[in-house]
Structure formats: structure tokens, C-alpha cells
Nucleic acid binder design. Structure first.
Length: 500
RNA sequence: GGCCCAUUCGUCUAUUGGUUAGGACGUCAGGUUUUCAUCCUGGAAAGAGGGGUUCGAUUCCCCUAUGGGCUACCA
């Protein structure tokens, strides 16, 4: 296994935006490929015309790019096994299905979807489950029950048919999964799955089996929802006389509220899209738009169902590649915790001060604020641990550059009720402030220490309110020293005018 | 219903026969911060249940329960 060139594929269908689970599947494929110096391939499984959603493909491409898990080969990247859209490979599937037909592994079936729907209902009413399988196929309208001539005639009149895979009972299949070990399934339980739909397009089972073989995929890493189809896929490989690839079925990401796996259809109480998705008039923001860093997002995703064994949790993509292994993937489904991503983002944020700096620079330019680099750096160091996202930095640091344009209404009302006394205090304080020379942290601190305990706290509260607009923020003496005497007095005046 | 897969603190997880069952997020309490946040310290918090196997089971086996997947001319 270690000798061969590893080739893995991420094969989403363009039925909408990729969600968390899809991105994680792509990530694990990417990690596994990179770890072994292999090739990561993107194949688009667009065999379902009905569910096709425009823009999904570009969304998938953009998302992988944003996450820095770009394919080496496939849709958007080219490669020796093109085309990588299944819709463009229909003739290939037809060629191979003929092989199956000729060898007796597949047969024509003429029931329509509606016919079968009725049949299922009938069975259900009797307390049974209808299955198109070895028990029933002899009673149904298919080529198994016809002579060659009859079939020919039927095909001449009836243009609508499907091709089913003939599964023989009585065999116990033992299949290996890298994550789960050996899995046993009896062929009696399988039904004759449709391989070619009446619109002439192959189903997932056929298309992916053929493509995985033709594209020389060595490891199929996909969600656990495929585990039940594993036997079918094994049988398909065997019918073609091909060696199956290795399989690894990933645990599903489960919904926290309600039941089931996460899906595009049922929105969660946390964002499930990596990037924004525009659906008509509604825009659903993704992690990117919400301010999450791709590396924090990817780091969190990697640890959802897998971990390298130690106590460390922060890993760069390169470190993930280095430590990744399929054998350490968990078997059980996982619940997603938005608070943990929030924490991850903060961890990444404090290591991205340069990005915060350039964000602030742009903000300043936009607001026509002049600043000095050193001053800005100091502000960032003072405020960065108060935020989780870059875009939050301004609301926590504006007062170092510009007076508050808004005062906390609750406290404002409180001091307005007592404004004469407050104004008196502020005016007195202003006079004292003039005399502080130089206007340094230490001297400002000394000034406040002249007040008695109770008074001092109230005074500091007032000052903070005048400077910041509310009762939260960086150490008061630091703010005073940084914005300087003139600006400080100006802001006291502002407040006095406000409450007059 | 049938089949398949799973089951360690609320959540993500470590521990692959012998541990006071460890960490992280969250949570609670205390401390630092003359505010808030950060930070520091500490606490509460888990092997689904029942049988085996074994000197000894979270770890191996069986049953039950629970959760999940599949059961489409969807992937």
C-alpha cells in the first residue's frame, strides 16, 4: 500500500453549497493525499439532472480554495483522466454497462417509477416491504423473463427502461473498511439496484465505480451514509473483474437539535456553510463572512472525528498533513460545537496581529484618521485579547483615535438625573488635569489617588464614560496617557455639554 | 419494519486488560485587573444497562437499550 501512488477523490454533487460535512470529507481526502505524497482529485458527480443547482460547482471550487485544500487534478484543474464531470462521461458508462449486460450481471427492467411506487404501497398495506430483488424479479417486467426476441421487440416499442444490477442470494460478503474493520453483509438483503436510469444516465453506484477504477483511485474516503452501499460496490467491482480500492467511511456530523445528520435542507442553529450562499433573495452567510479564519475553521473541522492522539489542538494545515492518519478517525458520529470554533478563532486571531494591523490601517484611511504606526501597534496589543474576530477590533479601540459618538444610554440617564453635581465635579477635575505635567500614566494615576476611595471610583467611572462612551475598556490611565491631555479635556467637555 | 454501523464528562476527545479514567471547549467558584475583557488558580462533570471471559475489564464476547445510516430512476 505504501508503495503505490495514492490517489483519492472528493466527489460532491452540484446540488447546492458544500456544508461542514462535505468540507471535512474533502479535508480528510486532502490530508491523506498530501501525507503520502499522493494526488487529490475533484470529480463532480452531476448525474442527477433534477437536483442540479446552478453555481454549486463554482461554490465548491471557491470553498476549497478558501480552505487551502485545493485539488491537484480534476474539475477546474485538468488532468490525464478528464473529463471529470460525470455528465460528460455518459458514453463511458454505456460502454461498461454493455459489458455487464453481455455477461449476465445486469438486465433491463421496464417498470416505471410510478409502477414501483404503487407496488411498494401495496406491499406496505400488507405489512411487507417491496424489494426489487431475487425474490421478486422473476414476477416482474424485465429482460430476465423474456427471450431474446421478446426483449428486442420490447425495446423497439418501449423506449423507457432502466438497467438493474442482478444480485444473487446466498453469499456472505466480508468487506474491509479502514476505519471500521470487517463488515459482513448477506447478498440476500441486497436489491437489484438501478445502474442506468431511464434518462440514459448512470446512477452514482455505477458511475463512481467506473470512474474510481478508470481514474486509478486507491482510497475511497467518503461519508458513512455510503456504508450500506459498500456491498453493492464490491459486487460491481467483482463483476467488472476489477480490484476494489480501499474504503474508509467517515463518521457523520450529527445535528445537535432534532435528529439526523446535518444537511443543506435543515438549517442548524449554527452556520453550516463555509462561505456565503446566495439563494434568490436570501443570503446565507458562511464562516468566512462571519469572520472566521480558514485555518481556524479547517483546524476545528480536522479535529471533528479525528485527532492525532496528544493533547495539542492547534495545528496548521502542514502540521495536520504531517500527523494525519485514517486509522485514528473515530467510528461514532459527532456533534458540532460552535463555541469551540469561536475559541479556535480567537486562538488564531492572537497570532495574526499583522492582519489586525492592516485591517485597522484600512479602517483609519476610510475614516480619515491620521495615526502613527507605533501608536496603532500599541492599541492593537492593548485590545486584541478582547475580541474573537478581526472586525470586532474597531469597536474595542476606536476611542484611542476618535471621541465616542455614542454614550451608553443607561448610564447617561443616570448621570443626567444628577447633572449639576456631576458637571461641577467634571469642571473641577478639568482644572486639575490642566496642571498635570507631564501628562503621563504615573502622574495621571497620582491625580486620581488624591481622591478618597469611593470618590475615586466614581470619578474614574465618569472619566471612562467621557473618554469611551461606556463603562468598559482598557485601563483608564493608559487611555488618558495615550490620547493626551488636550483630547482628554475635550472629551470631558463633550460630556458636560451632553448632560447640561 | 428489515439490514448495517456506533455508544468515555453537556460537547470534542485521550486511555487499545491493571490510570486517583487525562486534556480541551463550555460551565461554576476564587484571585489579578481601581471598569470590562484577558490572564491565573480551583471545582463540578463520563465509561448506556445487564450478562459473560479474566486474578483483573472503559478496553474482549453476547444480549438489551439508545443514537445514526441505508432501505429512491438522490448523491
Amino acid at each position: 500500500m505504501s508503495q503505490q501512488h495514492i490517489r483519492v477523490r472528493f466527489a460532491p454533487s452540484p446540488t447546492g453549497p458544500l456544508h461542514l460535512g462535505g468540507v471535512r470529507t474533502a479535508l480528510y481526502n486532502y490530508l491523506f493525499a498530501k501525507k503520502h505524497g499522493g494526488t487529490f482529485i475533484l470529480r463532480i458527480e452531476d448525474t442527477d439532472k433534477k437536483r442540479f443547482v446552478p453555481n454549486s460547482e463554482s461554490y465548491i471550487l471557491k470553498t476549497l480554495k478558501w480552505c487551502h485544500i485545493e485539488p491537484d487534478e480534476g474539475v477546474g484543474y485538468g488532468g490525464p483522466y478528464s473529463p471529470y464531470h460525470q455528465s460528460k462521461r455518459i458514453n463511458i458508462y454505456r460502454y461498461y454497462i454493455n459489458q455487464l449486460l453481455n455477461n449476465g450481471y445486469a438486465y433491463y427492467a421496464f417498470e416505471t417509477d410510478d409502477d414501483l411506487g404503487i407496488k411498494r404501497k401495496e406491499y406496505k398495506n400488507m405489512g411487507l416491504t417491496f424489494s426489487y430483488n431475487y425474490e421478486n424479479r422473476n414476477k416482474l417486467d424485465n429482460s430476465l423473463n423474456m427471450t431474446k426476441e421478446q426483449l428486442k421487440k420490447k425495446l423497439d416499442i418501449c423506449s423507457s427502461y432502466v438497467i438493474r444490477f442482478k444480485i444473487n442470494p446466498g453469499e456472505k460478503l466480508k468487506m474491509h473498511d479502514i476505519i471500521r474493520g470487517w463488515i459482513t453483509i448477506h447478498t440476500d438483503q441486497l436489491d437489484d439496484k438501478i445502474l442506468l436510469k431511464s434518462d440514459g444516465v448512470a446512477t452514482y453506484h455505477l458511475a463512481s465505480t467506473i470512474d474510481d477504477h478508470l481514474m486509478k483511485i486507491t482510497h475511497v474516503i467518503r461519508g458513512e451514509e455510503w456504508l450500506s452501499s459498500l456491498a453493492l460496490h464490491f459486487l460491481l467491482y467483482r463483476s467488472f473483474g476489477w480490484d476494489p480500492p480501499n474504503f474508509a467511511h467517515l463518521p457523520l456530523i450529527l445535528k445537535k437539535d432534532g435528529k439526523g445528520k446535518i444537511s443543506k435542507r435543515n438549517p442548524e442553529n449554527f452556520p453550516i456553510y463555509p462561505m456565503q450562499w446566495i439563494n434568490g433573495d436570501t443570503i446565507i452567510p458562511g464562516y468566512k463572512e462571519l469572520g472566521y479564519f480558514p485555518d481556524a475553521f479547517v483546524n476545528m473541522l480536522a479535529l471533528l472525528g479525528w485527532n492525532p492522539g496528544g493533547k495539542r489542538e492547534i495545528f496548521s494545515l502542514q502540521e495536520l498533513v504531517k500527523t494525519f492518519s485514517l486509522s485514528r478517525i473515530k467510528k461514532s458520529g459527532v456533534f458540532f460545537d460552535i463555541k469551540k470554533v469561536y475559541w479556535f478563532n480567537k486562538k488564531y486571531l492572537i497570532s495574526k496581529k499583522e492582519e489586525v494591523f492592516s485591517f485597522m490601517c484600512k479602517k483609519m484611511q476610510k475614516n480619515f484618521i491620521l495615526y502613527e504606526k507605533d501608536y496603532l501597534w500599541k492599541v492593537i496589543h492593548l485590545t486584541i485579547n478582547r475580541i474573537h474576530f478581526i472586525h470586532e477590533i474597531w469597536e474595542h479601540s476606536f476611542y484611542f483615535f476618535t471621541p465616542p459618538s455614542y454614550y451608553d444610554t443607561y448610564f447617561l440617564r443616570k448621570i443626567k438625573n444628577n447633572h449639576e453635581q456631576i458637571i461641577f465635579k467634571l469642571k473641577n477635575a478639568k482644572l486639575s488635569l490642566y496642571k498635570i505635567n507631564p501628562f503621563t500614566y504615573v502622574n495621571v494615576k497620582l491625580f486620581f489617588q488624591k481622591y478618597e476611595n469611593k470618590c475615586r471610583i466614581k470619578m474614574m467611572q465618569l472619566f471612562r464614560f467621557a473618554l469611551v462612551g461606556n463603562l468598559k475598556g482598557v485601563d483608564l490611565f493608559t487611555i488618558l496617557e495615550m490620547i493626551g491631555k488636550k483630547e482628554s479635556i475635550q472629551r470631558l467637555d463633550n460630556l458636560i455639554n451632553k448632560i447640561k
